[in-house]
């Protein structure tokens, strides 16, 4: 169990680093082709398809989202050039049939127009074992303030 916890922690830390340093192609490559990236509004639901979410991306939408971030066409992505996120509090919820489900806390800070803002969230990953590493099957970001108003977010949580 300890080895698994170390392995998923290392994987998630690397993923966080890719997003903070905008290594988006590498980030896309972490995904299973059928994987879903979800930022729900209703933090209780698991029926994302039949709910309105902030983001609910399949592979195509993930690619489009990355394209938008790197194209330079979206003015909102230019005023938040940098995020700093710190995943922590890792706990393995299940490990069966080659898929590890792990939950962690994520504290993400952005600096937009000189205003420092923080988005705390609980993040649950479903990671499929592949060779020595993992592929992301699901990443669900449950923002602490999902049920209230946000500000605009010009990056990937």
């Amino acid at each position: 169990m300890n080895a698994t916890l170390n392995a998923v922690t290392a994987f998630i830390n690397t993923e966080a680093d890719m997003l903070d340093f905008q290594d988006y192609q590498a980030w896309l490559d972490l995904w299973d082709e059928d994987g879903s990236y979800v930022v729900p509004i209703d933090t209780e639901t698991e029926d994302y398809a039949n709910s309105l979410n902030f983001a609910y991306d399949n592979a195509t939408m993930r690619r489009l989202r990355v394209n938008r971030l790197i194209s330079g066409e979206a003015v909102s992505t230019q005023t938040t050039p940098k995020t700093v996120r710190a995943p922590s509090r890792f706990r393995i919820l299940s490990d069966a049939d080659g898929v590890v489900t792990v939950r962690c806390a994520q504290l993400l800070s952005e600096n937009r127009h000189g205003n420092l803002r923080t988005y705390p969230s609980d993040v649950t990953y479903k990671l499929r074992r592949e060779g020595e590493g993992f592929r992301m099957v699901e990443k669900v970001v449950r923002l602490l303030n999902a049920d209230h108003h946000l500000s605009s977010i010009g990056y990937i949580l």
Partner: peptide, 23 residues
């Protein structure tokens, strides 16, 4: 479902449209 996916695509704080409006 399709209506919600189209909505998510453009609207809201993580949509492909709204953040640029807000900016």
């Amino acid at each position: 479902q399709l209506r919600m996916r189209l909505h998510e695509h453009f609207q809201g704080p993580m949509g492909f449209g709204t953040p640029d409006d807000a900016e």
